[in-house]
Design a protein around this nucleic acid. Structure first.
Length: 941
RNA sequence: GGGCGGGUAGCUCAGCCGGGAGAGCAUUGGCCUUACAAGCCGAGGGUCGCAGGUUCGAGCCCUGUCCCGCCCACCA
């Protein structure tokens, strides 16, 4: 050992991560403008808005994925010298948060109604105070370098003011209106929800065929329905005007069973004669289609439900107060008893459910506030059409257009308490005053009524997404024209999932354009969903959820099982989940560290598809961290306390030094390009292969003889140490956006030794590397490529012919003399140790018998090993190689014999093929010679 | 019903402007070689879903088709 290693033998992320994150945050490095300053230039601004997580939520894999990418972008641009702001914050998540607190109250035997509005809101704020910090703490564990000093919350005073301002202005322009409309009603949450918050899924149901007698005479008709209970609210029966079967009934009255009401038979083009019986019962107050038809035919809207979706007083007494499901059974039973149930057929249908409550949503007539969306959408469509906003991948803009072109008015009022109260006040006569605050409303009311009148504020709050839509400018201080708004708006990239393109992305574009005249962001990077290893969506009920923090810190099996089976909505699933978990993670999950998680996320971030989270890959990248750690350890062991050429401008670099520096430039170029096109996977694999392959496997091995003093002199050592430090230091900078912690830890030790020294207090603030054209060295690259081929060929020969690895060998080389001199003799110091050869010499005359043979372009290699070599193995190997080469030759020659190819292919392609032909031919010849020699030996007794 | 994405090695995925099929993991043979066994050095493994077409040449472009996934849509 060369002295004390200054680093432990393995990388242990735990302490490193906590220490550096605290250090960065305490020193204000996350604040916009903290990055390395480009002298003489006023820095460009760069801004990313975080999709604010739910304030009471917890971090999941989707966050880990997206936030890793955002942080990588921000860190990279910060290092590029830009004034980079990652605006962070949380969302009040109206319904979701209210539900959590209501559940708590239910457990205490209380309810929000018992508490009253004010006390309930106090309770929610209290809960927000308790749990609201956890997700931002978890975000910190990911290494997220957001500007915490600007952390925002959608219900902060300033953001709330923006919400009111937007509401009032839209109202004044007639883009917000109030009206009685059929909306999606969640009977469990007692609130309207928007179309987007309703998820329809196919479920098993029935189609009931019911007989409705005509009011006059003996005739009857049969309707088919999936919702027999709504019969009680029927206003008509509709048939197709051309339907011969029913034409004579049009205009006559039907006696609606169970109610005694008379309803008309009407004709409407939208009725499909082939479905069911061809007769449709029309319930204008409880079905969107029927509602439309009811408007066309002036039918009464008979609301039969209460807010709980129990039957109200509009139905016969027998059914009042019944739940809609009970009512269905009762209605069907009563009809059957009266002989009016014709048949019941199994029928699959789409059932709409609230995305939060999972309750079946009811179309329900209520007074609600709406945003007139179409006028806002028009400009938002143009912004994407003309490229002011780009989608990555581009194909998502189709999805965007599709929705925007068919956009419906947006129901923005919610009958819940947690959220932004609608700034509307009602006078005694119901007149509405929409104002920025109550005082203003009073003033207006006074001038209208001529005296002080009691005003009542609208009890509803706004859809959470209303405030989210303003996030890109409300967080920057709008409606004030703040310096931040000027500097950072429009923002640069939005990183988010496809699942909220409609909920959020589209609405931000509409609101941004409307209120700032500019797009909110120039690029939308759409990520896929993080799925489990089998490609299933992660969900609590499936028990396949991975917590990013468990991947970082590790978790033992028992805790994991407990975590996955705790608080199950369906406890019967717990057993299966437990078994599956024990099978998949028999040892629990080891601690991989944040950097490994981030690197995995980056390398899985291929565009345009969901990602299946592969734990094996994560393990590989954990190993990569360790590899990097040990490479740095090696470099430090061989540089600390020695001459490393700090002041030396033009060291006498070896070809290996020049080679790795050249490879480094290529890597910088490639990583730059990858970041520019959001190919995080490409950036990750490029760095992985440069560090593990070029740097560790080759360069470190090549320099060992120099460092150990076996090869070259003091000057060579200095140049080599300087190169080692420079390359590692630069690579750490390149890797930092993806792996912030380990790179900082190592950089702090490596950078001070490097030629330029540690230029900034933290790697976070260090300048992003740029390509030094002068260090590109094609000559060194091609020569060492040859060396790699020779070393590889010898290693293969050894391994395949069973030569003991410890056995030193003498190599015979045949080929052009000047070539051998140029490529072989001059680089023997790079070849012999890696190939574990102790000598080599140029072969004079015939190759000796009993040789392992390798054929490279223009060079043949022989290892004479009388008695040791496995002739059968070598012969088989050569045979395989010959077959391969013959195949290649055939293909290339076929091409070159084709006049069409020669006539049409580009000249350089033809030249390339000719080279290939020559090369294959030569290899074939050499291999064939070798095989013959072996076979001639085997024929000997 | 409309739209989108995907199908490449056992698994998870790259594959650029059409020009010699790649990586990681897994498998397998050999190594405790003084940074790293979370390591080192080798090897095997693919009818690029299928069928046509364009082209001198197709994993890549076109047409059709099958399978998987997702999104949107009011069929009672």
């Amino acid at each position: 050992m060369s002295g004390d290693a200054s680093l432990p033998k393995g990388y242990d992320p735990v302490g490193v991560e906590r220490r550096w994150y605290a250090h960065w945050e305490e020193n204000g490095y996350f604040k916009a403008g903290s990055g390395s300053v480009v002298v003489g230039a006023s820095p460009a601004s760069y801004c990313i808005m975080i999709p604010p997580p739910n304030v009471t939520g917890t971090l999941h894999m989707g966050h880990a994925f997206q936030d890793t990418l955002m942080d990588a972008l921000i860190r990279q641009r910060r290092m590029c010298g830009e004034r980079a702001l990652w605006q962070t914050g949380t969302d009040h998540a109206g319904i979701a948060t209210q539900m959590v607190v209501e559940r708590q109250l239910a457990n205490e035997g209380s309810s929000r109604q018992q508490l009253g509005r004010e006390a309930f809101l106090e309770r929610v704020w209290q809960w927000k105070g308790q749990s609201g910090g956890s997700i931002v703490q978890q975000l910190r564990r990911l290494g997220a370098s957001c500007d915490w000093s600007r952390e925002a919350f959608t219900m902060d005073a300033q953001l709330s003011a923006a919400v009111q301002e937007v509401f009032v202005r839209l109202y004044e322009e007639g883009l917000i209106y109030r009206g009685t409309r059929l909306v999606n009603w969640d009977p469990v949450l007692h609130t309207a929800v928007s179309d987007l918050e309703v998820v329809s899924e196919e479920e098993e149901g029935s189609l009931w065929y019911l007989r409705y007698p005509l009011a006059d005479g003996e005739e009857s008709l049969i309707v088919a329905t999936t919702r027999p209970e709504t019969l009680l609210g029927d206003a008509a029966v509709a048939v197709h005007p051309d339907d011969e079967r029913y034409r004579h009934l049009i205009g006559r009255q039907v006696l609606l069973p169970l109610t005694g009401r008379h309803i008309p038979v009407i004709a409407d083009e939208t009725v499909k004669p082939e479905f069911g019986s061809g007769c449709v019962k029309i319930t204008p107050a409880h079905d969107f289609n029927d509602h439309e038809m009811g408007r066309r035919h002036n039918l009464p809207q008979i609301n039969i439900f209460t807010v709980d979706a129990t039957l109200n007083d509009a139905v016969p007494t027998a059914y009042r107060g019944l739940d809609r499901h009970v009512a269905r059974q009762r209605v069907v039973a009563d009809l059957e008893a009266q002989g009016l149930l014709v048949k019941v057929v199994a029928h699959r249908l789409m059932i709409p459910r609230g995305d939060r409550s999972k309750a079946v949503v009811e179309p329900y007539l209520t007074d609600q506030w709406f945003v007139r969306a179409a006028p806002l959408a028009a400009e938002a469509i143009r912004a994407v059409e003309d490229g002011r906003v780009n989608f990555v991948p581009d194909s998502w803009k189709k999805t965007y257009f599709e929705w925007m072109l068919n956009i419906q008015d947006w129901c923005i009022s919610r009958q819940i308490w947690w959220g932004h109260r609608i700034p509307a006040w009602y006078g005694p006569d119901g007149r509405v005053f929409v104002c920025r605050d109550e005082a203003q409303a009073r003033q207006q009311a006074r001038s209208h009524y001529g005296e002080e009148c009691p005003l009542i504020q609208d009890p509803d709050v706004l859809d959470t997404w209303f405030s989210s839509a303003l996030w890109p400018f409300s967080t920057l201080g709008w409606p004030q024209q703040t310096p931040e708004l000027t500097a950072f708006y429009p923002t640069d990239v939005l990183v988010t999932g496809f699942d909220i393109i409609f909920f959020w992305v589209a609405r931000m574009i509409m609101m941004g354009l409307k209120f700032t005249g500019q797009v909110p962001f120039r690029t939308v990077y759409i990520t896929g969903l993080v799925r489990d290893g089998e490609g299933h969506k992660m969900s609590k009920s499936k028990g396949n959820v991975l917590d990013p923090l468990d991947l970082i810190d590790g978790i033992d099996l028992e805790s994991l099982v407990q975590k996955r089976t705790r608080d199950m909505m369906q406890p019967q699933l717990a057993q299966r989940i437990e078994a599956a978990t024990r099978k998949e993670f028999p040892q629990g999950i080891p601690a991989f560290g944040t950097d490994a998680l981030r690197f995995t996320m980056a390398s899985l971030a291929t565009q345009g598809r969901d990602i299946k989270f592969d734990l094996g890959r994560m393990e590989g990248y954990r190993n990569f961290c360790n590899k990097l750690w040990n490479a740095a350890r090696f470099v430090l062991m061989n540089t600390e306390g020695r001459a490393c050429g700090q002041g030396v401008q033009t060291p006498s670099r070896s070809v290996a030094d020049r080679w790795i520096l050249s490879r480094l430039q290529q890597t910088i170029r490639s990583v730059d390009g990858a970041f520019a096109k959001y190919r995080f996977d490409e950036a990750a694999t490029t760095l992985y292969h440069f560090l593990w392959g070029d740097f560790c496997d080759w360069y470190l091995e090549w320099v060992k003889p120099v460092l150990y003093g076996h090869e070259g002199g003091e000057e060579a050592q200095v140049a080599c140490r300087q190169t080692l430090l420079h390359v590692l230091e630069t690579a750490l900078r390149l890797l930092h956006p993806l792996m912030p912690f380990i790179t900082e830890e190592l950089w702090q030790k490596v950078a001070p030794l490097s030629r330029q020294g540690r230029c900034t207090a933290s790697l976070m603030l260090a300048p992003w590397p740029h390509v030094e054209e002068g260090l590109l060295d094609p000559d060194a690259e091609s020569r060492l490529h040859f060396v790699q081929e020779v070393v590889g060929a010898v290693r293969t020969m050894r391994s395949e012919t069973g030569i003991p690895p410890g056995q030193k060998l003498a190599l015979l080389v045949a080929g052009d003399v000047t070539l051998l001199d140029r490529l072989f003799r001059r680089h023997q110091a790079l070849i012999l140790p890696l190939a574990r050869l102790d000598s080599w010499q140029v072969l004079e005359g015939e190759a000796p018998s009993g040789c392992a043979t390798a054929v490279l372009p223009q060079v043949r290699l022989f290892i004479p090993l009388q008695g040791v070599i496995d002739l059968d193995a070598e012969s088989a190997r050569l045979g395989r190689e010959l077959v391969r080469l013959e195949g290649e030759l055939q293909r290339v020659r076929g091409k070159l014999a084709n006049p069409g190819f020669l006539a049409n292919a580009k000249a350089d392609v033809v030249t390339k093929e000719r080279h290939k032909e020559a090369e294959f031919q030569e290899k074939w010849q050499g291999t064939s010679d070798a095989l013959q020699r072996i076979q001639s030996i085997r024929r000997l007794p």
